[in-house]
Amino acid sequence: MGSTQESGTEGGVLTESLVVFLIISVVCVAGGLGVVFSRNVIHATFLLLVSLMGVAGIFLLLLAEFLALVQVLIYGGAITIVVLFVIMLTKSDEFESLVDNSQKPLAFLISIGLFVVMTVAAIAADNGNTVRASLKFSDLGHSLFTDWAIPFEVASLVLLVALIGAIVISKQGEEE
């Protein structure tokens, strides 16, 4: 994976990476829409996985290979499977009748509004910069363990606390 990569849209010409970007974005957004509109919660989980793998592809386009692999490992290998586990341990037939609440139109308006605002802001602030800088894997590791050493330790503490907390919470209801 090279150093700095140059690409851009000169006068509306589609470059290779833009085509790839568009394909992956369609996958991401379609998966995301599937998550919030699907009537079957298992399908929603698999669609979330599709969407998140698309996000891993986006990370690759941004030359962040390490993050892309972390995304695949954490979301594909851990989070989706744990969610599936829990869905199958709770009553899954309940979900058929349990889809949307009465805030639906309002929620729709709010999200459309937020999307429009963010898009307008992004386009207004666009500086047309098309140079993406890649980061060497070793540099990332170096800065993670020097500049970010304390946050890193705090993050591992957070994981430990969450681990213990999850065990305690799920053990609580067991005796009933």
Binding site: G76, G77, I81, F85
Partner: peptide, 24 residues
């Protein structure tokens, strides 16, 4: 790949999803 070993671990985990979805 420079991260070959990590790549192998990350992708080999994905097949668990296939097994659990096949079961379901």
């Amino acid at each position: 790949l420079d991260m070959g070993l990590f790549y192998i671990i990350a992708f080999s985990v994905l097949s668990i999803v296939g097994l659990i979805s096949a079961g379901w």
